[in-house]
């Protein structure tokens, strides 16, 4: 099972992502959730998380700040982060990948897109 942390300030988007993970056939159990970066760091320091799915624009601590904090923490820097955002600008994608994001999914996205990206990031071969 892959322990996934969903970081988004929108509860309905977190619900949607959980649903998509479920129908995608990804064995994610019950994903962890956080409403912003600071909450995410608390979860990451308390539980074993294999992958983070994070929005960028959030209150308190945004996705960029979360990634920066993870990079500065020896215990967290190897956890892959996949960004999920409405921001489709190529320079934004490049910026986030340059900061260490392992993947970038632009909303809207379908279950197949999420599955493909997570398989790629987690190194799972397609059937």
């Amino acid at each position: 099972m892959t322990n996934i942390l969903i970081v988004d300030d929108s509860p309905v988007m977190r619900t949607f992502i959980k649903r998509v993970l479920s129908v995608s056939g990804i064995d994610a159990g019950t994903p962890f959730e956080a409403g912003h970066g600071r909450e995410a760091l608390e979860v990451l320091r308390a539980y074993p998380v294999d992958l983070v799915l994070s929005d960028i624009n959030m209150p308190e601590m945004n996705g960029e700040e979360l990634m920066r904090a993870m990079q500065q923490d020896e215990a967290l820097r190897k956890i892959p982060v996949v960004v999920i955002s409405t921001d489709a600008r190529l320079d934004r994608v490049d910026q986030m990948m340059g900061m260490g994001a392992r993947g970038y999914i632009t909303k809207p996205f379908n279950p197949e897109r999420l599955r493909t990206e997570l398989d790629r990031v987690l190194g799972v071969a397609h059937a």
């Binding site: 929108s10 309905v12 988007m13 949607f16 409405t86 921001d87 489709a88 632009t106 909303k107 809207p108």
Partner: peptide
Amino acid sequence: ELANMLCG
């Protein structure tokens, strides 16, 4: 969220 995605 719908407004956000459409605007984006």
